[in-house]
Simulated scan of single mutants.
Amino acid sequence: MAKDASIQQQQFDRIASGKGFIAALDQSGGSTPKALALYGVMEDAYSNDDEMFGEIQKMRARIITAPDFGSDKILGAILFEKTMDNAIDGIQVPVYLWEKCGVVPFLKVDKGLADEANGAQVMKPMPDLDALLARANEAGIFGTKMRSVVKEANADGIKAVVAQQFEVGQQIVNAGLVPIIEPEVDIHSATKAEAEDILKGEILTALNALPADSKVALKLTIPNQAGLYGDLADHPNVVRVVALSGGYSTDDACEKLAQNTKMIASFSRALTEGLNVAMSADEYNAALGSNIDKIYQASL
């Protein structure tokens, strides 16, 4: 499905001003075994990477096809590359999301984190990014997501993270996609509040340097100071500011998010909390529906 300008505008409007949240279904190779184990699928259930990704695809398909996974509460969904290439009921997943669920598809494009330097981890190089973005466009993807991590209030480390995020972000904009820029601050950092102040300043500087027509979204850890990122959400280059759950429980993440009126959720682990492969359809749908409703209410 090649890009259609009217669909792209509908998707942009939905992300920019719709009510709801963005579901993160983008666990990659490194985090997949843990995500599967929490779901009740242990490592003895698969013997290689292909079988492991087959199991995570079944898990994601069950979420996407659940009755509560729809456009009334969910604006978008972030996919892993293998999920983008997969199908549900014979329909490629990004197309299924938009046409069957009314949910805007995003793609995780980073290749993981480099080693820590100056209290932060930038992203590993992405030499094949242009080719991946071309495939994403062809598959009907609207935007992308890429993650770096800040572990302490180190100005040099934070500056490096933000510079890389925005440099790659512009490459993504040039390819016709909307990047979600994600410089996560570790929730266990002893200097989390100070790191968030430095991060906000660096992001604001980078936003002010963008061309007027470059639109980005931001995915940020829920800040210690409620409302800290409000003026980032109001910036003309920012489509939306979304929050990551960062390891908080669903209830804690929702409670903290509700104090930040200009952020909506983009939760991964909190979305799937309590789900198990052995649940009956009724049990599963009730548990997922409860999580979706909590996250939706916190995002209003």
Rank of each mutant, 00 (worst) to 15 (best):
D4G: 01
S6Y: 01
A24I: 07
A24F: 05
G29D: 03
L36A: 06
L36T: 09
Y39T: 02
V41K: 14
A45H: 13
E51F: 07
F53C: 00
G54H: 02
E55C: 03
R60S: 00
F69K: 06
E81W: 09
N86Y: 05
D89S: 13
I91Y: 11
L97D: 07
K108P: 10
K108M: 08
D115T: 12
E116H: 04
A120V: 04
Q121M: 13
Q121I: 08
K124Y: 12
M126G: 08
D128F: 14
M146I: 06
K151T: 13
V162C: 05
V162T: 06
Q165N: 14
L177Y: 12
I180L: 14
E182I: 09
P183L: 11
K200F: 05
K200R: 15
A206V: 06
K215H: 10
V216T: 13
T221A: 13
Y229V: 02
D231Y: 01
L232G: 01
L232I: 00
A243C: 09
G246N: 06
Y248M: 12
S249G: 09
A253G: 10
N260F: 14
I264Y: 02
S266K: 04
F267T: 04
L275I: 02
L275H: 03
V277D: 03
A281M: 02
A287H: 01
I292W: 02
